[in-house]
């Protein structure tokens, strides 16, 4: 996952992109493979949850998303994890600038 996190006026804004095909049930059926898409994404800073997102097959392929939160400092590490329908998972981190 690619993560960019920037702090401005007490609010951290994060842009992230998860590399995932996000295969819908329809497409998977046509291709004769199993559907698979990211079902849950979390982000934590200092073990505190700052993003908790449940998602469906309708996020775009390689979904890009942006979110904001308060309470972090520059230099803190943000850790993001996604989980997909078939149990795959990936964890990435970045330092808040």
């Amino acid at each position: 996952m690619e993560i960019k996190a920037k702090l401005k006026d007490g609010v951290t804004t994060v842009k992230a992109m998860a590399k995932h095909p996000m295969l819908t049930y329809d497409t998977a059926k046509k291709q004769g493979v199993e559907a698979n898409f990211i079902t849950h994404i979390t982000a934590t800073v200092n073990d505190k949850v700052v993003l908790d997102m449940s998602s469906s097959q309708f996020l775009s392929k390689n979904p890009i998303f942006k979110f904001s939160f308060k309470g972090a400092n520059a230099g803190d590490k943000i850790v993001m994890t996604w989980v997909d329908l078939l149990g795959g998972t990936e964890t990435s981190d970045a330092v808040i600038k």
């Binding site: 949850v49 700052v50 998602s55 097959q57 979904p63």
Partner: peptide, 23 residues
């Protein structure tokens, strides 16, 4: 075919300012 795209749980740190890309 199904209606739900995503759902966020918020806490004391959250700011409601999101951008997503959907199909």
């Amino acid at each position: 075919p199904e209606a739900t795209v995503c759902a966020f749980t918020l806490n004391e740190y959250s700011v409601i300012d999101f951008s997503i890309k959907m199909k």
